[in-house]
Amino acid sequence: MWVTVVVPSHGRHLRLLWLLNALAEQTLAAPWEVVVVHDYGADVAERILDRHPLAGDGRLRHVAIEPGTGSPARQRNIGWRAARGRLVAFTDDDCRPEPEWLDRLVASVRDPDADVVQGLTRPDGLEHHLLAAPHFRTLLTDPPGPYFQTCNIIYPRALLERLGGFDERAISGEDVGLAFRARSAGTHVVAARRAIVNHAVESHTLPGMVRENLKWRHLAYLVKRHPEVRDDLVLRVFWNRDHLAMTAAVAGLAAARRDRRALALAAPYALRAAGRRGGGPRARVTALAELPGQSVRQLAEVAGMAAGSVRHRTLLL
């Protein structure tokens, strides 16, 4: 049974190379291929993709799109529509699948026209030192989860065709939107905890992290399209508990000019932030030193989501 691995890539050509190196070590015996959809120039594409051993083996194809015209949804749609496989596995260019990843995902498929199989994604152990950075991004998903993150999942091509693929109007959360449509269509989800993808741990500067997280403002579109997402939100409005605590802290600080007791509203945020690095004395000092930067980051996230709420006319913070 043919399997196609679809990878959208933008701005991470070296990590894409490392992903291809990891894919070249897959143990799956069945025929499989990789389709990379990217917006790199011809020189980078030649260096990273055309010269890669997977291309020499005829397993790697790539589709170049105009720089600045891509989005994860559009790139994944281009990728699966170009796929030869009856099964389409998705992963990302900042991931490192274990050698048995594809084999174990495919082995978990019982109905190749209906089952969705979700693997386990964890922060890459080779990059765990970066967790010491004040601002980092990585991912942990323990299947079966509700959001079907596309860093580690396999869809039947027939199902993708029935669902119309990813919603290209979604700037972020396009995988979650597809998950809700798949579940509404009665799709059976299989957890494959031994199909492991290691997700990069990337540290950012504070401005870089704020920029990176601004994309989450578009999640309001997802909530508008799929109101059932609210069932998983904190108080059906807040994306996570940190956002609730930050919003309460801002309200408390604003109200404290009239009544100092309102400052108590900031206490939950301060307590959460102080415990962010663990319970030891050094961890507390580190967390307190990081508190100003974390506050700015989370305030920017909440403000961005408020802006998204206005744009998409539904409240999500």
Partner: peptide
């Protein structure tokens, strides 16, 4: 692979 992005600023 274990040494190309193992620390901040390494990559």
């Amino acid at each position: 692979r274990s040494g190309v992005a193992d620390r901040r600023l390494r990559l």
